[in-house]
Design a protein around this nucleic acid. Structure first.
Lengths: 237, 237
DNA sequence: ATGAAACTCCCCATATATAGCGAGGTTGCG
DNA sequence: CGCAACCTCGCTATATATGGGGAGTTTCAT
């Protein structure tokens, strides 16, 4: 039992390209004997990366019809921390049911299990298994494999992040303590005058920090600088 | 091996109060024979919840000295997706080293392993094991238990979220699409004029969105509103 | 010990954001 | 149908932030 997981993980570790990740997903599908395995991903700029075994037709249709905006799976996972079996979701709205029928017509199975995965900078990914099974068999399958799937999903996300992070991860600038404190005060809603009072410095001095922080962060204005500092994890509100 | 994990998880499942969670952490400490086990948690408004086996003195000192702002563990985990062993982190700065010494003086072990966990609405939690071991033994320990620890950390976070969700989960306001788009543009560094152009609306209309978003978010100014929207996970840069 | 980076202070002119007023069309739910 | 919430637009005046100068002390790492 555990050996299977280790095998799958070592295959994953060995992946060196995005194509390898695609192959890993296909291997997972065959291993678990399900219809589809999918991983997809939204980064901080709204770019998307997806890999999986859905047909190109379904992926195109999904994007074309903007199902992303009404898919109960996306919506449900965005609001919760725990993995979700699709039948638990709210399919009552008409567009959602139409989408569901459309999905069945495009070769998707009637059962799904999706794990939400969150990373730094608002990264959000979904790791999904889709199958054709009865409710009972599916529940059994999930019960047996949920732990492994969670590990797999997270390891997969780690790999995917490694590929995507190449360019911009090293560019997190380092702010001085006073600069960080200034950003922090502003993020908490203080005006310059209040922040200066809080830090026991003149408003002019505070401004120097804000400006230098802005330059380091490559920000256009104060709001932008605070936003970048926040989403880089430099400060916490 | 796996039975142990199941035992720990069933104890966790049975937890019905925050005190039970505290007891679970103490059980984990004893089970893994480490110095400390800690879970702590930051929500979008900056409220904190913590449980664990650190001494009250150390917790007080940590908060009093504002170590949260310079702790390489916090900083490192906020920027990464994967768990981290403390020795991998950057302890070169003087304040960080002083904190480290201070921690040792307060009964912490020389090794640590912290798992960052992210949930909905910008929730961010840390699950930590702390021990006194040589580098080699610690690496071995982590290698043997990292999978289980990840499961445990996530299950613990799930439990903690269940308890905390009663009060403030409904307090994340819902912004209208235009309000979200406005916040998003500002977070990307656009001026009001640029954002208005981007959204094809007058600058005045944009201002209405910003103001209503500000009110909904309970923010003092635009920067504050964007900061809250970001750390609540309402928008991403 | 020497230099780089951080910390601190000041002035002036302009750009930008905020606060207050008001008003009409559209969408969606009960 | 009506109400609520959303989306859209305009004006005026004040408060606040930004951009451009310059200059001295302290702190820390090599």
């Amino acid at each position: 039992m555990t050996n299977r997981l280790e095998d799958l993980l070592s295959t994953l570790q060995a992946a060196a390209t995005l194509e390898d990740l695609q192959a890993v997903l296909e291997g997972l599908r065959d291993h678990y004997k399900v219809e589809h395995t999918v991983y997809h991903w939204v980064n901080s700029v709204g770019e998307r990366y997806g890999a999986g075994t859905y047909s190109a037709e379904w992926v195109d249709r999904y994007l074309e019809k903007d199902y992303l905006r009404l898919d109960p799976v996306i919506f449900g996972c965005f609001q919760r921390f725990t993995p979700v079996s699709w039948t638990e979701l709210d399919w009552s709205s008409k567009p959602a049911r139409e989408m569901w029928q459309d999905a069945l017509d495009h070769g998707l199975g009637n059962q799904g299990y999706t794990i939400p995965i969150r990373g730094p900078n608002g990264q959000f990914a979904l790791f999904t298994l889709n199958a054709s099974l009865g409710d009972k068999e599916w529940a059994q399958f999930i019960g047996d494999n949920s732990r492994d799937l969670m590990i797999l999903g997270h390891e997969f996300n780690k790999k995917a992040l490694e590929f995507e992070q190449g360019g911009d991860e090293g560019s997190v600038p380092s702010l001085s303590p006073r600069e960080l404190a200034s950003m922090s005060c502003l993020a908490k809603g203080m005006s310059r005058a209040q922040a200066a009072a809080e830090l026991n410095i003149s408003e002019h001095t505070l401004r120097v920090y804000i400006e230098s922080a802005r330059h380091k962060l490559g920000a256009m204005n104060t709001t932008h600088a605070v936003a970048r500092a926040l989403s880089s994890g430099l400060i916490i509100i």
